[in-house]
Amino acid sequence: MKKNAKYMMDIVPGIVIALFSLWYLSMVPGIKTFTGMGSTPLTNHFVPYLWGGALLVLGLWILIRGIRKRAAFVKAGGTIEKFDLKKGIDEKREVILSFVILALYVGLMGPVGFVPMTILYLFAQILILTPTNKWKRTYVPALIVALICACLFYYLFRYKLNVLLPQGILKNFGL
């Protein structure tokens, strides 16, 4: 199992990186260049080509390395396990959930406002990071932490340090 994951660790990133660099490189010709007075002989295309090209080479390098590892593995008589998507998602459900609520948090912060979103986010994130069997004892402290942090940070940063935290719906109450 471990050996199996090892070459996958090269093949999958290799493919992703190579595809990404191709996508990046494909956008370079569309960049407007500046050819007026005092323009540099190397235009603003050169360095993106350089990085994109370097990334493509590295991606392919890792990919080929992975394929060779796989071949060696098969030759050595290893059996290739199939990746079980459902099991994978289940294993990582806390991580996936954390990303989802984090995305919701920042996405809705503008319209809804910092304070309500922070309360919801903190409460949810604390629970996600707590084993389910301890949830019962966590509800109250989590809520208290969420309430205090949201209000305190909002007051401190918005009114004392002039960080433009979104007001959102609080605007209707003049806060």
Binding site: F34, G36, M37, G38, S39, T40
Partner: peptide
């Protein structure tokens, strides 16, 4: 010496185009 696209660039352009100057423009 100029900073391309900035105020100094505009100055250099005016000097070249309206003043006839022929500098080696360096960013």
């Amino acid at each position: 010496g100029i900073s391309t696209g900035g105020g100094v660039y505009i100055q250099a352009c005016v000097m070249t185009n309206l003043g006839g100057a022929q500098f080696n423009i360096i960013d």
